[in-house]
Design a protein around this nucleic acid. Sequence first.
DNA 1: AATGAATGAGTGTTCATTCAT
DNA 2: GATGAATGAACACTCATTCAT
Lengths: 212, 212, 212, 212
Amino acid sequence: MVEQRKLTRAEQKALRPAQILAAAFEEFVSNGYAAARVEDIADRVGVTKGTVYVYFETKELLFEEMIRDSSRSFRDIALKARELEGSPLDRLVALIHVVYQQLFDDRQSREIMRLVISEGPKFPEIVKRHERDFIDPVIAEVDALLSEGVKAGMFHPQRAGFAELILAPVLTATVIRLILGDRFDLQREDYIRAHIDLLLNGLQVSPSGKVH
Amino acid sequence: MVEQRKLTRAEQKALRPAQILAAAFEEFVSNGYAAARVEDIADRVGVTKGTVYVYFETKELLFEEMIRDSSRSFRDIALKARELEGSPLDRLVALIHVVYQQLFDDRQSREIMRLVISEGPKFPEIVKRHERDFIDPVIAEVDALLSEGVKAGMFHPQRAGFAELILAPVLTATVIRLILGDRFDLQREDYIRAHIDLLLNGLQVSPSGKVH
Amino acid sequence: MVEQRKLTRAEQKALRPAQILAAAFEEFVSNGYAAARVEDIADRVGVTKGTVYVYFETKELLFEEMIRDSSRSFRDIALKARELEGSPLDRLVALIHVVYQQLFDDRQSREIMRLVISEGPKFPEIVKRHERDFIDPVIAEVDALLSEGVKAGMFHPQRAGFAELILAPVLTATVIRLILGDRFDLQREDYIRAHIDLLLNGLQVSPSGKVH
Amino acid sequence: MVEQRKLTRAEQKALRPAQILAAAFEEFVSNGYAAARVEDIADRVGVTKGTVYVYFETKELLFEEMIRDSSRSFRDIALKARELEGSPLDRLVALIHVVYQQLFDDRQSREIMRLVISEGPKFPEIVKRHERDFIDPVIAEVDALLSEGVKAGMFHPQRAGFAELILAPVLTATVIRLILGDRFDLQREDYIRAHIDLLLNGLQVSPSGKVH
DNA sequence: AATGAATGAGTGTTCATTCAT
DNA sequence: GATGAATGAACACTCATTCAT
């Protein structure tokens, strides 16, 4: 207790913003922006409403800072994508695994995605930032990998035109998980294996050039 | 428009529910459930708040009925899926096209998807209904097609395990469109063609059995 | 049905006001003036709100007419009081019985009394009418009886000064019944007998002139 | 009044509930539960509607707490009844005086009685509490006094069967006062004297055992 | 006469925000 | 910095009343 109090006085206050942001994440995620109550956020931290306003000017600014704060693991996708090594194929497969880890597995990322979808129309800034910081870089990275693979003769040029197609199964699994919650019961490992296998090799037994 | 003032009371009345539901769709889509105002819905129809309550008991019930009402083209996916004819491959391709039309192209379906994602936690009934009426039937239909194709020796058994993978590109495009709105600029035809091509034939030039 | 319809067409309408007044009595009694709903009154009759307004201009006027209409058995007390015959004592006893019948026994009278107590401050006219038509005449009649009895040497002059004292037990029983409702379990006959016995003969074994 | 502005926030706050309850008493008494407006209660205190809700969750709970709070002098009847000393006769007479003081004289008690009569059907809890805390104890006390007096040979056994009869004149005077308001002009002292005299000695000059 | 759709003025309640302590 | 009492602007919902049919 002696040491805790020493930490407390000085550090308690330093921790406040982070505590409030964490509480805000939970409340905004559970209720959405409009229905979340500042008082419930304060209660979660164990302080009163007024205290929240000491650190954040308005509910709106708190929301925006919370989104920024909770997008960390989101932004890590782009970071990790850039650090990959090996052949284009290896890096593609590794990148896919990264997205499963950072997006599908990570509750925070998933819920931020929900909030971007639901509150986007009201907070265009947030959408733009996510586009700039996450979507665009990842798409760019995938595009680079694909070009490289095509140049190396590994990937079919006409099938490497859309980066979105490469990651679609992760995004789809994530969205379904957002919608169904705990009821979504996916064999994660099998799904990822099938994802990569299908992506690389295709569904048909006798591949044809026919386009439908 | 020419004979609009000919509408009798009785005709007016018969139209009211549909008018209100249409207005409710716009308001709930723009603002989300909590932030939408019953009065704005009424204004949109050109009536007063009280009139909305003549037809819908509460804001909550209005929301639920609006979701049900606006899910029509959503539910048509499952309907149309069942009517397809031809080889498993033909039907698979046709089904994919149906989903682009009914989900990706259709603003109503897209926005309902946004609302299911954002309001789902608060309206579990709605999620369950969508799961039962849309998600499950479509997954089942795709699964049936895949089994049939495998049996016919057309599809690789180990790559036909997850129906979600087949449709992932449509869902992903839809979600990105929800997030980016008008800024999402996709070459629809090329994307669909690439989707199907990649799905059937795979990305790699020399397919391998290697699993990553 | 044949004969009923004949009655219906012509008489249904003649009955409407009475039906509405009866329904209004129930609703106003159950909920009080402010909380009663015109629509509930209409529902009770099996017509729509508009019909009530065909017969009664406003909720307020309906309330007032209902009170007037339902005060019949109330007003009969004064009427019956005037028709009594016999010695002052006989008439006094008979009058007491009449009040038990017309007020304590009669649900309508009791509930009108409740409404006069509760809505009186908002409807002073109603109170004045009740004072003039019921309270004053009955008090006057009792006073006349008492004077006569005193003149005849039957009643103690100093104990015959307040008519209210004579009827207090009936009013009290009625008020308690209003408050407790079905939980009020009074041995009616014994109570009336004790009322009259006590009134005439007093509680003390050795009466004294002492005043406390 | 001189130092009124000296009140600190804390002191103000400590007073608020009592102020609101007092204001609520006036508004509920004047208008009844349904017609009373929370805003008028707030205005009376000099605060805004929101402030009332800081202290009382709902209008209904405010009403119930107000009734409880304003029933003090009501409950004192039972308390004072238990502290009486002297012969059964003395105590009976003293008890009657107590009821005149605490019920007939006291505006708060009278108006609470009005509210119990008018709002009882909607607030059965309140009625039950009043029955348990006030009606039953007083009846019990009077019954005890009567039994004692009968045992002591002071009271006629057959005329001492109903406690209600003993107090009926007070209740009756109170009810009439509730109905007539300021127009009720009673010679209080004479009435009380006549009440007790009549109760003890009876109306008849030559008492008879005859029962009517 | 009867209907019932529509109105609009209200009313209870909520909640982000402020500010004196 | 932290509090929490107070505010006031909203907002869902109600209901007496009207009126075209």
